[in-house]
Nucleic acid binder design. Structure first.
Lengths: 184, 184
DNA sequence: TCAAAAAGCGACATCAGTGTCTTTTTATTA
DNA sequence: TAATAAAAAGACACTGATGTCGCTTTTTGA
């Protein structure tokens, strides 16, 4: 499967992703993407009819990957694995799409993101409730704690694009959440 | 003081602020602002030479107001007052400039925002350390806790622009922080 | 009350990005 | 290797935003 064109589309998405991470959504033009990929305008338009289309495909890839995890381990193991993933994501701010995502969302794609957010919250709540049931986690309000985890993370990724990054910031995130959930 | 032009400039900033809150920074054009204010292009340019200039003046006003608080009360009182302010800010998402700010920052104005962020963190750390010294707050890592408070808030304001707002979200924020700092 | 200054208007040239269309190049395979 | 299809190029007309400039209206204060 995947005709000849697949390679080129992949290359386009890959370069476009870098641009979106650098500049946000609105600041990226089709011509920018041409430049990065080495394609001409005509060539590029053969594959994608606009930055919105490219971006939405990138997001689908992105979130497909994010939903793949989950195994049948203890709540504690899942938590630690999850936090480690987030920690590394926080570290390479060059790859963060957060600004682009918020721009794109507030340009009329709110519902899509509402779903993503609701899904993420639900997954966290499940994990927390499960961990509390097995006694691995301290008792907390699952809804409240999920929001803390999610919003704290969002804020972190957002600002880390922009401000000089303090070394412990990512560690703080992880250890805060562990402190709130696990006995020392 | 404040010549005749002052009124008009105020009106411009006021309307522009609404637009920035609605659409973010890049999506707002000088023509948009003309429309809202009822001025013509020529008229508007007499006062401001571009959206960047307007936005930066708005920010100065904004942060001047934010730094004005602080009194000589107990740490607990200051905390509660601060949190109440944040809570109400979270509630009226229409007025949130967060998206615009991040766009503007990542368009080459990083250092300005690095300062704002550093200032906010320093103020929180002072408060926390003071509260711990007087025994009003539980012992916490002041740096870690300040980052939690700030990033959580940022994430919250950001997303609340975009997703259906759950009623308790603002309360969660306040109560999480109180739980972490005050004895029940 | 009337002249000068301030405020406001809108046409203009310009620019950067868009999306389309025709032509050229490159691959494919009969 | 010639015929055909797919991919890529780049010229074109168009759009929407910019910033400027000369003109008109309003305000003001001598």
């Amino acid at each position: 499967m995947g005709g000849k064109g697949t390679k080129t589309k992949e290359k386009i998405r890959q370069q476009a992703r870098r641009l979106f991470a650098e500049k946000g959504f609105q600041a990226v033009t089709m011509s920018d993407i041409c430049e990065r990929t080495g394609l001409s305008r005509g060539g590029l338009y053969r594959y994608y009819s606009g930055t919105g289309q490219i971006f939405s495909e990138i997001l689908v890839e992105e979130y497909a990957a994010a939903n793949k995890m989950e195994g049948e381990s203890s709540a504690r193991t899942v938590l630690e694995h999850l936090l480690e993933t987030l920690r590394t994501e926080i570290m390479d701010k060059e790859r963060s799409l957060s600004l682009a995502i918020y721009e794109y969302a507030s340009l009329g794609n709110e519902t899509f993101f509402a779903e993503i957010h609701a899904g993420a919250k639900k997954r966290w709540m499940h994990l927390l409730e499960y961990g509390m049931k097995t006694g691995e986690f301290k008792p907390v309000d699952a809804g409240q704690m999920s929001e803390l985890i999610l919003y704290y993370y969002q804020g972190l990724r957002m600002w880390s694009r922009v401000i000089p990054f303090e070394k412990q910031t990512a560690e703080y995130y992880v250890s805060t959440i562990k402190q709130m959930l696990l006995e020392e």
